[in-house]
């Protein structure tokens, strides 16, 4: 009977190779996850924070508050509701009122949303989809990234926030979509 003790060279080499490949692939995945996380952390650029604050100031100057603005300007802001939850979508870029569009034009505001992510994301699936379908695809991603606790106080009551969608045009014709939000 032939005894077999230990490993042959080939077996050892193969095992070491497989382990090395696995470890390197894990590391590259880890690096990718880190990069995605960092890009999400810089999703709201510094300049957008100031721009969003200016948008809030302008709407308050125009109508007293952001909620008054969205309610009073039905030609610009559309109301959508489901299961007692409401959201407003204001198309600023295509608005006809120069009183609104001219001062906001330098800020490159495309749309303004007035909604509570907590209210919408905690709806049952069909109602949630019904509410999200009125938002742009990039805005849906942004609302989901805010999470289902955004627009919800510690006591459990919900409130609406203002989300501004910017469309930055570049000289080569390309553009970049950015979002920023603020409690109002």
């Amino acid at each position: 009977m032939r005894k077999k003790n230990g490993f042959v060279l080939v077996e050892t080499a193969i095992v070491v190779s497989v382990l090395s490949i696995t470890l390197l692939m894990l590391y590259s995945s880890y690096s990718h996850i880190l990069r995605v996380t960092r890009s999400r952390n810089t999703y709201v650029h510094t300049d957008n924070i100031y721009s969003t604050y200016l948008v809030k100031k302008q709407l308050e100057k125009y109508n007293g508050s952001v909620s008054n603005f969205v309610v009073s300007n039905s030609s610009i802001c559309k109301l959508y509701s489901d299961s007692g939850i409401s959201e407003y979508v204001c198309d600023i870029a295509n608005a006809t009122s120069e009183q609104i569009t001219v001062p906001l034009a330098p800020l490159e505001v495309d749309k303004i949303y007035y909604l509570s992510p907590a209210e919408i994301l905690n709806l049952i699936e069909s109602s949630k989809e019904n509410m999200l379908m009125h938002l742009d695809a990039t805005t849906i991603d942004y609302v989901k990234s805010l999470g289902n606790t955004s627009g919800k106080s510690d006591t459990g009551s919900t409130y609406k926030i203002m989300i501004v969608k910017y469309k930055k045009q570049y000289s080569d014709g390309s553009y970049e979509i950015l979002h920023s939000s603020m409690e109002v």
């Binding site: 650029h45 300049d47 100031y50 721009s51 100031k57 302008q58 100057k61 330098p106 800020l107």
Partner: peptide, 29 residues
């Protein structure tokens, strides 16, 4: 006569070698 303040944006375009923008954007009313 209009109720709104005017706004101003200053842009200093900065791009990297692949064309991604890292512009310095400054806004004020």
């Amino acid at each position: 006569t209009l109720k709104m303040n005017d706004t101003l944006k200053i842009v200093l375009p900065i791009k990297d070698s692949v064309g991604l923008h890292y512009d310095i954007n400054l806004t004020i009313d």
